[in-house]
Computed example of a mutant assay.
Amino acid sequence: MVKFGYTILYVEDVEISLAFYENAFGFSRKFITPENDYGELSTGETTISFASKKLASQNLPEGFIESSLEDKPFAIELGFITDDVGELVQKATSLGAVLVTEPKQKPWGQIVAYVRDLNGFLIEICTAVEN
């Protein structure tokens, strides 16, 4: 059996990133190392984690592509489900997220918007898909 456990985002400042996700999306802090170079948020079944770019460099000596608001987002996104997309988009952007697309209703009824976090990672804010 395989279980999806976590996603780790490589960021400049773990503490600032944790605080942003706590304040913008209401997640709670699960863990942070004494060195503040790795931290986790309780987000439900799967954890969102943050590692400092310095720590990531130790694990990946060949390097990696860094996320930045100056560049286009990676071809990956975090998806957060909420009942009020507009309200959550407003809250996130008031705390520093960058709006990519305003909330839009999809043909299947779901409402979807996109923002980028302080580090440039893409976040989809949406309602649940009704089956």
Rank of each mutant, 00 (worst) to 15 (best):
Lys3His: 09
Gly5Glu: 01
Tyr6Phe: 14
Thr7Asp: 03
Ile8Asn: 11
Leu9Ser: 02
Tyr10Thr: 08
Val11Asp: 14
Val11Ala: 07
Val11Gly: 11
Ile16Arg: 15
Ile16Met: 04
Leu18Gln: 03
Leu18Lys: 01
Tyr21Trp: 15
Glu22Trp: 00
Glu22Gln: 15
Asn23Met: 01
Phe27His: 12
Lys30Asn: 06
Ile32Cys: 02
Pro34Tyr: 11
Asp37Lys: 11
Gly39His: 04
Leu41Tyr: 07
Leu41Pro: 02
Thr43Pro: 06
Gly44Arg: 11
Thr46Gly: 01
Thr46His: 11
Ser49Lys: 13
Ser49Gln: 13
Phe50Trp: 02
Ala51His: 09
Ala51Arg: 07
Lys54Asp: 14
Ala56Asp: 10
Ser57Arg: 15
Gln58Pro: 00
Asn59Ala: 13
Glu62Ile: 03
Phe64Lys: 11
Ile65Met: 06
Ser67Gln: 09
Glu70Trp: 00
Lys72Trp: 05
Lys72Glu: 03
Lys72Tyr: 10
Pro73Ile: 04
Glu77Phe: 13
Leu78Asp: 00
Leu78Arg: 03
Phe80Lys: 00
Thr82Phe: 08
Thr82Asn: 08
Thr82Lys: 09
Asp83Ile: 00
Glu87Pro: 00
Gln90Gly: 05
Ala92Pro: 09
Leu95Glu: 01
Leu95Gln: 03
Gly96Leu: 04
Gly96Thr: 13
Val98His: 09
Thr101Cys: 06
Pro103Glu: 13
Gln105Thr: 15
Gln105Leu: 06
Lys106Val: 10
Ile111Ala: 05
Ile111Lys: 12
Val112Pro: 00
Ala113Gly: 09
Ala113Tyr: 11
Tyr114Cys: 05
Tyr114Val: 03
Asp117Gly: 06
Leu118Asn: 12
Leu118Ser: 10
Asn119Gln: 13
Asn119Lys: 02
Gly120Cys: 09
Leu122Phe: 02
Ile123Cys: 10
Val129Asn: 13
Val129Gly: 09
